[in-house]
Amino acid sequence: MTKLALGTHPFLLGFEQLERLVERTAKSGNEGYPPYNIEQTSENSYRITLAVAGFAEGDLSITVEDNALVIRGRQSDDSEGRIFLHRGIAARQFQRSFVLADGVDVGEAIMENGLLHVDLTRAVPQRVVQTIKIRKG
Rank of each mutant, 00 (worst) to 15 (best):
G32D: 14
K136N: 11
L120M: 07
S28D: 12
R74E: 10
E39D: 09
Q126R: 15
A5K: 14
Y33R: 05
T131W: 06
L18S: 02
I89D: 06
L18W: 07
R122Y: 02
R87P: 00
P35T: 00
G7N: 09
E112N: 08
Q95P: 00
D119R: 09
L21W: 03
D119H: 13
V22K: 10
A109L: 10
I110L: 03
I62R: 14
R72D: 05
F84A: 08
E65P: 00
A91C: 04
A56K: 14
L116H: 00
V64T: 15
H117W: 04
L60Q: 11
V106K: 06
A109Y: 09
L6H: 01
T121E: 14
D119Q: 08
K27G: 01
I71Y: 02
A109F: 08
D59K: 09
E80H: 08
Q95G: 01
M111P: 00
E80F: 13
A90P: 00
A56Q: 15
T63Y: 08
A53T: 08
E23R: 13
Y46L: 13
L69Y: 04
L50E: 05
L13G: 01
V70S: 01
R96V: 09
T2R: 10
E19A: 05
Y46T: 00
R122V: 02
P10G: 06
S79G: 03
G103P: 02
F15W: 07
R47G: 00
Q93L: 08
V104L: 13
T25C: 02
L21G: 00
E57V: 11
T131I: 11
S42G: 02
G29R: 07
T2E: 15
L12Q: 03
G73E: 13
Q126E: 15
G103A: 07
G54H: 07
G107D: 07
I48Y: 04
A53L: 03
L12N: 05
Y33C: 02
R122L: 09
F98V: 05
L85I: 07
R92M: 03
V104W: 13
T121C: 05
A90G: 02
Q126M: 14
T63V: 15
F94L: 12
P35E: 07
D78W: 12
E80L: 14
V99L: 12
D78G: 05
R72W: 02
E80R: 09
A91M: 04
M1A: 11
Q95D: 04
P35M: 07
